[in-house]
Design a protein around this nucleic acid. Structure first.
Lengths: 363, 363
DNA sequence: TTGTAGGCGTTATCAT
DNA sequence: ATGATAACGCCTACAA
């Protein structure tokens, strides 16, 4: 390549350049070290250098040693962008999460990060400012030619289809897309909700209230459906339902609204997640002086770390988030590498956490 | 470029190819759409296409329209890797955080993500499995030619120097590197600790104990130094200190150890962070039946969301993490774009949160 | 095992 | 405003 020649001809014709020589050239030409520079210093061809950085390539012991020494002397590291251009693999995966990164996404994130980095891949984080930014976000995802994506946010059918068109493997995390098959790892929220209601009903609760999650949240929808469905089956009245935003404050607000509208206290408040349950619980005990679980039961969903704190010991359904994150990484790596079946659906069940905030019947 | 010719000659010589034509070619040659394909469809040169995707380039209205239509028809998106090869900008920033992503890193992370994406940049996440993995991690950072890095983990002098050598701007987050100047945004932990001790001493506390953070944590070290330093100044005895791991459980353990070794209850336990304070508080109240703050005061550091929950209302020092994350993004963007001074040091002060877990004197 | 040479998809320079 | 053409840094047949 002609543009390389100056490097070789500007300097002495002897095959051995010193480290200083090359560093001087790099400085003069204001460029960063490349495999060519390493090649010159090591007295081999550029392709030899390339091979040394490819695991399992055929290089002689002595060449390898000389190249690695030269690379170290020059602080050389292969350029991932250049590599990806030709290999068509960026070793980058997109992780798309809603902007409101609640506590438990951070666990998922670090587990995903751990799993992917074990395979030499890294996470590019896409934090949605709001649901409506998905298209703008996806446009940026495409630019980076990520090898795959884990999506823990709402995706339209069309958006999912675009992943297929572009042949970017996706694994949905606790989501599904209406009317479309997709790889996904999910916790069965509806089943969890039904189990919770069953236990509560067995404990003698009759008048149910619910602090629901945001209407747009599929997880909230499923939990709500499970609660309503199971109550109907048991012949119990539909729950008085108010809407929250999955945070502590809205759990507190939710309780007030329920008391207002109910004109008193129900038997149990099933909260859409642990944070709201904790907010509800704190407000019930400290602001309303309500005995929980004596007079009122309060339950959550998720099984976040805080739920097991001594002050709360919350009765809840725990999602196996750690395993789920591991599974998501597993599946995505499988899809990227060609092994791994497409549209696989790994379902997990939440486990009942027998806390101290609800009066329960036998299991 | 010879390898492009087949595309142009394999098909009809007329300048207008249909979308189907090109999609067929793409399929046959098993490659993804490039700017060349868009150029052909739009009937312009490849460079024209390139210019259309560069904001502020000079393109005629009509060319622009045709190109954009063709791009949309073909689902074309510029390849960031190819672009970065020549522009030397990846639009990627590394964020390096310790593996134990405690609750509050997730806030920092989402704020950083928000700030960077506002500038068209994205975060590549590097989650350290352990401190000793820094070198391995950095090797991966270099490969991706990130435009800069935010580091919220321990960095040796040599490691920091490597950032300089490679001309990768770094902003340290709540860290500093011994004996070296670096851009950093920090909260003054020692000052915060001193302020806390001052208030506690004014409240009449004499016998201090401390549940310290991990010995390797610089934040823990500074807080400890502040506590010890201020106590000495006030002529009070050095605190009985036990070591925790910044989590809830170690706060509980810490209290037990203190009671054991102290042979009773001190006046106050200053905890290295809020999580430990909450663990300590819960254990004191519920396991030991100690009146807090009547008989024992408990304080934290950080001002995490949980600290203001009704059950706790923790007396603590709040770090302005949100502002700090914003500042870090700001500084890094400045360094990357050339504006922005090097080795700038933005210091923040923690603010006192007058909770209900400590008996205090006047401010 | 090693080197030569062409190509990955873009941007940038320079005429036109 | 537009189009050739040369990089950017690497990988990979292919030939030796």
């Amino acid at each position: 390549m002609t543009h390389r020649l100056p490097v070789m001809t500007n300097s002495t014709p002897t095959p051995s350049h010193t480290i200083a020589d090359i560093k001087a050239i790099l400085h003069r030409e204001a460029r960063r070290v490349t495999s060519y520079d390493v090649a010159i210093l090591a007295g081999v061809s550029q392709s030899a250098v390339s091979r040394c950085f490819k695991p399992g390539a055929s290089v002689s012991k002595s060449t390898y040693a000389r190249v690695m020494q030269a690379a170290q002397d020059l602080d050389y590291t292969p350029n991932a962008a250049a590599r990806s251009l030709i290999t068509r693999r960026s070793n980058l995966v997109a992780v798309i999460v809603p902007g409101a990164v609640s506590q438990h996404y951070s666990d998922v994130l670090s587990e995903l990060s751990r799993q992917f980095s074990l395979r030499g891949m890294h996470i590019v984080l896409f934090n949605l400012p709001s649901e409506s930014e998905m298209d703008r976000t996806l446009a940026e995802v495409w630019q980076h030619r990520v090898d795959g994506a884990v999506v823990a946010a709402r995706l339209s059918g069309e958006q999912l289809a675009e992943f297929e068109r572009r042949q970017v493997p996706v694994v949905l995390f606790n989501r599904s897309v209406a009317g479309r098959a997709a790889s996904a790892v999910v916790c069965n929220q509806e089943e969890a909700a039904r189990a919770m209601v069953t236990r509560l009903a067995a404990g003698g609760h009759k008048r149910f209230a619910m602090i629901d999650g945001p209407a747009q949240s599929p997880v909230a929808q499923q939990r709500k459906r499970g609660v309503a469905g199971r109550l109907a089956e048991l012949g119990l009245p539909a729950p008085l339902t108010v809407t929250g935003t999955f945070d502590y404050a809205s759990g507190a607000r939710g309780l007030r609204e329920i008391v207002d509208r109910f004109g008193g206290v129900p038997d149990v408040i099933v909260c859409g997640n642990d944070l709201m349950a904790i907010g509800c619980l704190d407000t019930a005990r400290h602001d309303f002086n309500i005995d929980v679980p004596g007079r009122l039961s309060v339950t959550g969903f998720d099984g976040i770390a805080e739920s097991s704190w001594i002050s709360y010991n919350l009765t809840t359904m725990r999602q196996p988030l750690h395993s789920m994150a591991q599974a998501a990484a597993d599946m995505l790596v499988g899809l990227v590498s060609g092994t791994g079946s497409t549209n696989e659906h790994r379902g997990y069940s939440a486990t009942f956490v027998d806390g101290a905030t609800a009066r329960l019947g036998p299991a």
